[in-house]
Structure formats: structure tokens, C-alpha cells
């Protein structure tokens, strides 16, 4: 039924393509739609109904322009936005365009200095919304099992600044995993700058155990352009034991070899000689990657 009517509009619009009034209808409706942030099916319904309403009003009131019949497109978009969700807050009734706070697309935001909408799922887990997306202001905070927003806090956090078990954000703080421009995690971090307890991978990687990156430093293993750790491999290294392509500082540092097994043996023997044992993590890496 819906499709049929859409086809009706297509032909209607095609038949009237030279009619300035109908051209203006399309422009007017497109403008309203561009201001609304909602899913495609709703957009389709609204678009369809606005065409119908315009035609209905025009038949009854005469050949007036769309704006005269339905009002300012900004006000109309604002009404739709307000009425789609009853949780809308702080909306005013005037057509003051600075009142656009809810349900508007980024286009609207840029124009009026506001961000878009907020979505909070009805489903919760431990009293926390399953999904919370909040872009109501540049500093809006989203809190949910999945949280998305300028500031996001949750199980999975995505945003400008994010904190969560898993975090994928500009500034990312993750308990298990942090991915972002700056990633900080107790376990794994990946980013321009990565700081992690276990594994950090990034341009600059700082880690308690393993660091991989342009500048990598850790207490146990570091691999990178510049690598500093007990065991280091890189262009330039500073280590107890390691291999370098350019320069190395440390007691057991050697030029890089193509023979991984040989490198593994050197690392193992050097550590045994120096410390009398080989750390479990290093042993694991040697067994699996240096054979």
C-alpha cells in the first residue's frame, strides 16, 4: 500500500515537474527531512504524508506555497522532533530556531550550534540501558552497556572520550581493551599513543609487559623503531638483551639476524646467564615466534 502511494507521488511529481509550486513542495519537504534525524521508514512516511497534506490543503485553501500551508520548515521539523519522543526536554513553543535541540541532523547542528539527538533503549541490564546514544550537546554523556556520545561510559564505549570494558574513542580508557588516539588500558591498548598493563601497540607504546610501536618501551619486551625493555628488538634499542639494525645499548645487544631460531637461543642463553632463569612470557614468545 505504501509503495503504491509512493509510485503515485513519483508520477505526480513527474507530471508536475514544470510547475513551480510543486517544485517548491519538493524543496520544502526535502528541507524538512534534512533537519530530521530518524530512521528511513519514518522519513518515508513523513515525506509521503507531507505531500498528501500539502495537496489536501492546497485543494481546500487554494494554490498557496508550501510554507504558507505548512509553516516554516524549521518549525515543522522541530514539531516532529518534539513529538516523536515524549521525553523531549526544555523545548519551547516559539519558533526561535535556537530551540532546536532534539532530533535534528548534524546539518542543523552546524547551523544552530547544537548537536542532534539522544536515544536510550528501553531494555536494561543491571538497571543500565542496553544502548545509550547521546549527542544532545558537545559534552553530552552517554552511559550504557553500549554507550555512544561525546563522552561515553559503559561496557562498550565509543566516543570522543570513552571509558569502558572495551573502549573505542579518541581518548580511550578501557579495562580490557582501549582503542583510540590515546588508548589506556589495564590489559590491551592500541592507538596513536598506547599505554597498557599487558600489551600496548601504537606510535608510542608504553607497557608493563609487551610494547610494540614506533617508540616502544616496556619492562619486559619491546619491539619498534626505538625499543627499550629487558628484551628489545628494533632499529635502535636499549636493553639487557636484544637485536638492532642501527644501534644497540646494553650488555647483550647484537645486530639483527635473519635466523629467528638463532636469535631465540641468544636471548634465552643471555637471560639464563644473567638472571639464571627465563621469564614465562618470554619463554612462551621464544617458543612460538622464534623457531
Amino acid at each position: 500500500m505504501l509503495n503504491k502511494s509512493i509510485e503515485g507521488y513519483d508520477s505526480y511529481r513527474a507530471d508536475n515537474k514544470n510547475d513551480l509550486t510543486h517544485k517548491n513542495d519538493a524543496k520544502y519537504i526535502d528541507m524538512v527531512m534534512s533537519l530530521l534525524e530518524c530512521d528511513a521508514s519514518y522519513k518515508r512516511r513523513i515525506k509521503e504524508d507531507l505531500y498528501i497534506m500539502l495537496e489536501e490543503k492546497r485543494v481546500q485553501k487554494g494554490g498557496l506555497a508550501a510554507e504558507t500551508l505548512l509553516g516554516d520548515p524549521f518549525t515543522l521539523a522541530n514539531e516532529f522532533a518534539e513529538n516523536f519522543d515524549l521525553e523531549v526536554k526544555d523545548t519551547k513553543e516559539s519558533d526561535n530556531r535556537a530551540d532546536f535541540k532534539y532530533g535534528l541532523s548534524r546539518r542543523g547542528n552546524f547551523r544552530y550550534g547544537y548537536y542532534g539527538h539522544e536515544y536510550k533503549s528501553k531494555k536494561t541490564l543491571f538497571g543500565i540501558p542496553l544502548v545509550h546514544v547521546n549527542y544532545k550537546s558537545p559534552f553530552a554523556v552517554a552511559k550504557g552497556i553500549i554507550a555512544v556520545g561525546p563522552v561515553a561510559i559503559g561496557g562498550v564505549a565509543c566516543g570522543g572520550i570513552g571509558a569502558g570494558i572495551l573502549s573505542f574513542s579518541g581518548l580511550s580508557i578501557g579495562l580490557l581493551l582501549a582503542l583510540g588516539g590515546l588508548g589506556i588500558s589495564l590489559f590491551f591498548a592500541l592507538g596513536g599513543m598506547a599505554v597498557a598493563g599487558i600489551l600496548a601497540v601504537g606510535g608510542m607504546a608504553l607497557s608493563g609487559l609487551v610494547a610494540i610501536g614506533g617508540f616502544a618501551t616496556s619492562s619486559l619486551i619491546a619491539i619498534g623503531g626505538y625499543a627499550q625493555a629487558k628484551v628489545a628488538i628494533g632499529a635502535q634499542i636499549k636493553a639487557l638483551v636484544g637485536f638492532y639494525t642501527q644501534s644497540g645499548v646494553g650488555k647483550y645487544t647484537f645486530e639483527m639476524s635473519n635466523d629467528l631460531q638463532y636469535m631465540g637461543e641468544i636471548i634465552r642463553n643471555s637471560l639464563l646467564k644473567e638472571e639464571g632463569k627465563v621469564n614465562t612470557i618470554i619463554e612462551f614468545i621464544l617458543r612460538h615466534f622464534f623457531k
Binding site: S5, L50, N83
Partner: peptide, 30 residues
């Protein structure tokens, strides 16, 4: 319109109302 249609959509989505498209022979184009 901005107040009417969201209510109609909600009622439709809840299954309380349904819509029917009717093409009428008149000066109406749609």
C-alpha cells in the same frame, strides 16, 4: 502536522489504527 503524524505513526505501530490509500476521481492529483 508535526504533532498529528507522530501520534498517528505511534497508533499505527501499536496496531490500533491502519491506513488505506484511496485514489479518487476528482481534481486531486494524489
Amino acid at each position: 502536522e508535526g504533532s498529528l503524524y507522530p501520534v498517528l505513526y505511534r497508533l499505527e505501530d501499536k496496531g490500533y489504527i491502519t491506513n488505506e490509500i484511496v485514489y479518487e476521481e476528482s481534481k486531486r492529483a494524489i
